[in-house]
Design a protein around this nucleic acid. Structure first.
Lengths: 187, 187
DNA sequence: CTGAGTTTTTGACTTTTATCAAGGGTTTAT
DNA sequence: ATAAACCCTTGATAAAAGTCAAAAACTCAG
């Protein structure tokens, strides 16, 4: 049920009217594994909330598929750069498994901000969380060896290791499939 | 003059009252080179806007000084993680040169959001910009060689190369001083 | 101007990770 | 059931970057 999404947990200062307004704009999408939520080359029109399942964001460069991020249930995801700037996305987002997501369009979100100024607060807080997570990821990637990066992923997002392929994980951790395979063999 | 900071350029939908309210909360700080705006271990109390000069954010790990980011005039900076979560900062921010910054305290900023809900929009847009910049930095660091990372920095933020030391730049680009030195020798 | 201290460069060598190549396992379709 | 396709692992070698050490180039107080 939309009402029990847990979407507004830990967020205070938002009126019930705003919450209801926001939720009424959500559209439910049920997808099979491998369904593309956003496509490279197209402007990202929606912000997604993953109710069940998981997704992977990636782009293709020099014929190689490079994973940017994994998103699990309870998280928001979109091709942020494209969504914010309204320019074509360089990344593709697809589900890693059968999933249920709720999405809101860019226009509806902006209208929601106008109708319910306190809604801007929710979005702001979500952005803050994502900013911090990204900052940590960047700092972390700065001074860790391939092995440490893998161990950290196992620690923090063990579900990803079950759901994603070696190739997807390797590109996320910025190493080759072979290196990841050797690391796993030694643990 | 505070009024001519250029702070609200490119940001629409904010009332003059909100702008004035925000500006009135700013405190000017003139600093010498090397002045610490934020200290590791302490909660970050201010959001800074660099009017003149530049700053470097870094943390120390295993006795090594690792640069997280450089900030130039016209940009905002703070120990974001600490500022948002109100927990001790793991990073230190210091000016790279004699600088003039304007700062607003966490409490004043929150009050500003309450007094002027449309102010939340400005902050949100700033956050979005920073999020995108960080995302690009992360993606970029994923598949570039040491040399390419240096060339990209030269292209995008040439001022940093003049203002920061080899060691500071090397740790930002995630390579050793020696590697950076060799790269520079070959260009 | 000079010499102590610091920063940067250069050199020799080592470690880490990538690349190329081949071989096992699984899965899937016929 | 079997072949094709795919994914993962293993091995040999190569390339990239790191480490340690020493020399050269700056910086700045006296």
């Amino acid at each position: 049920m939309k009402q029990s999404l847990g979407l507004f947990e830990n967020i205070t200062g938002v009126s019930d009217a705003a919450k209801q307004g926001f939720i009424s704009l959500l559209e439910e999408v049920k997808t099979e594994k491998g369904h593309k939520l956003e496509q490279e080359g197209q402007v990202s029109h929606h912000l997604y909330y993953i109710a069940e399942g998981s997704a992977r964001s990636y782009y293709v460069r020099d014929n190689r598929d490079i994973t940017v991020s994994f998103s699990l249930a309870g998280e928001f995801v979109t091709a942020m750069h494209s969504f914010i700037t309204r320019s074509p996305s360089y990344e593709t987002i697809e589900t890693l498994e059968k999933s249920i997501v709720y999405r809101i369009s860019y226009e509806d979100l902006q209208q929601c901000f106008l109708d319910f100024p306190d809604m801007e607060r929710t979005y702001r807080i979500i952005l803050e969380k994502y900013y911090i997570a990204l900052e940590e990821q960047l700092i972390f990637s700065k001074f860790k060896s391939a092995k440490d990066r893998y161990l950290e992923l196992m620690e923090n997002k063990p579900k990803i290791i079950q759901k994603a392929s070696v190739g997807q994980i390797a590109s996320f951790l910025d190493m080759t499939i072979e290196t990841l395979s050797r690391i796993r063999a030694k643990i």
